[in-house]
Simulated scan of single mutants.
Amino acid sequence: MKLYAISDLHLRHNDNRLALQALPAHPEDWLIVAGDVGETLAEMEFMLSTLTQRFRQVIWVPGNHELWTMPSEQPQLKGEARYQRMVSLCRGYGALTPEDPYPRWPGPGPERVIVPMFLGYDYTFRPDHVPADKALEWAWEDDLMCTDEVLLHPEPYASRSAWCAARVASTRARLEALPPGCATVLINHYPLRYEHVRLPRIPRFSIWCGTKSTEDWHTRYRAEVVVTGHLHMPATLWRDGVRFEEVSLGYPAQWKFRGVRGLESCLRVILPDAAP
C-alpha cells in the first residue's frame, strides 16, 4: 500500500485530460491531489470521477485555480462560497478535504496523520527590504501580475491576506490539538517555506506563493513529509531532516519538455518514506 501525490493537473488542457484518463488503476493505494486541478466545477468533477475509481482514497487541497470565479461559469460563486462548493463536490465522491477530520495513514510504518491544508498566501514571500504595502508594486516592476488579482475573490474576507490569516489560525489550532508524539504528512498547494520558491525566471512571483507564517511548521508539527505544488518545478528537497516534495505536473509544454511519457511516471511516492 502506497501514498502517492500529484498536483497542478490543469485539466483545461486536453493533453493533461488524456494523460489523466490513461492513468492505470491503483486499487490499494491512496492519492493526494495538491491543488490546481482546473478552473471549473466540470474539471473538478472530471478529476474526482476518474481518480476515485482508480484509488482507494483521494485527498484534495485547493490551489488558486480552483478558486477562480470564471466569467463563463454559473453560478458565480466567489471566495469561501466557491471553496465550500468544491468541498461538497469532493464529499459526494468520497474524497477527503481540509474540512474533514485528518485521516490516520492505514499503511505500514509508525503512526502518521495526513493533514490536508488550505492556507492561501499573504504576500509575505518577499525580501525584507520590500514593505508590505509595496509588494504588488515590487512585482509590477518586473511586469508580473497574477490572474488571482482579477479572478480569485476573498469574500467574505476583506482581502486574500485576511483570508490567509484566518485559514492559518484555524489550521494551527487543529494541528496543536494533535497528539504530541504523532508524526504528520503536511499537504498544502503552496510551499511552506520562502526558500523553496525556486522561480529563477520570475522570482518576484513569490508574493503569490505562500506565507511566512508556516516557515517552521515542518518541525513544529513533526512532519515526516511536506507535499506541495504550485511552482511547476517537481523536486525532492530536504530541510531539518524533513522531506519536501514538490509534485506538480504543470502545463503540457512543461511536462513534455521534462520528457514525461505518462502521468504514472509523475506520481510521487510519499509513503513508505525514503531516507535522505
Rank of each mutant, 00 (worst) to 15 (best):
D122G: 11
L41K: 12
W68D: 04
T50H: 04
P179I: 09
A173K: 12
G63P: 07
D133T: 07
A166K: 07
E111V: 13
P98T: 08
C266V: 14
M145Q: 13
P127K: 11
T211A: 11
G181Y: 01
V58G: 11
P156I: 06
S88A: 15
P252V: 08
G63S: 13
A81K: 15
Y157H: 14
R243S: 08
L263G: 06
R172V: 00
R268T: 15
E141C: 07
Q57V: 12
P252C: 11
G120E: 03
I202A: 11
K78Y: 02
L20A: 11
A166I: 00
L267Q: 10
M44A: 15
H26A: 06
L186W: 02
V61H: 08
D36Y: 09
L96H: 00
D240K: 09
R91K: 04
W217R: 10
W255S: 04
E149F: 03
S213T: 01
G229Q: 08
C266L: 13
W163G: 05
A253E: 15
A19N: 05
R85V: 03
C266W: 00
P131T: 04
L237E: 14
Y251N: 10
L249E: 05
S248C: 14
E43R: 12
Y102A: 04
H189A: 12
A95C: 10
S161Y: 00
L136Y: 11
H218M: 04
R82W: 00
V269S: 09
E155W: 05
P24L: 07
H153D: 15
L67V: 07
V225G: 06
T147I: 13
T236H: 09
I270F: 07
C164H: 05
F118R: 13
W105F: 11
R222F: 00
C90L: 10
W105A: 10
G35I: 06
L18D: 12
L152W: 11
I207Q: 10
D240I: 07
G210E: 08
H13D: 13
T147W: 03
R112A: 05
L175E: 00
L263W: 01
G250C: 06
T214Q: 10
P103Y: 02
F125R: 10
W163H: 11
G250H: 09
H13Q: 14
I6N: 05
Q21G: 12
R54W: 01
A5R: 13
L48Q: 12
E215S: 14
H189E: 06
A166V: 02
Y123F: 14
A275Q: 14
R112G: 02
A22S: 15
W255D: 08
Y83D: 06
Q76F: 00
F244V: 03
P103E: 07
Y83W: 13
C209I: 01
G259N: 02
R54S: 04
T147K: 12
R17M: 01
A95E: 13
L144K: 10
R91S: 03
V33H: 08
P179G: 07
Y157I: 01
G181I: 04
A165W: 04
H65R: 15
L263R: 03
P108Q: 14
I270V: 15
L271I: 12
L119V: 08
P101D: 07
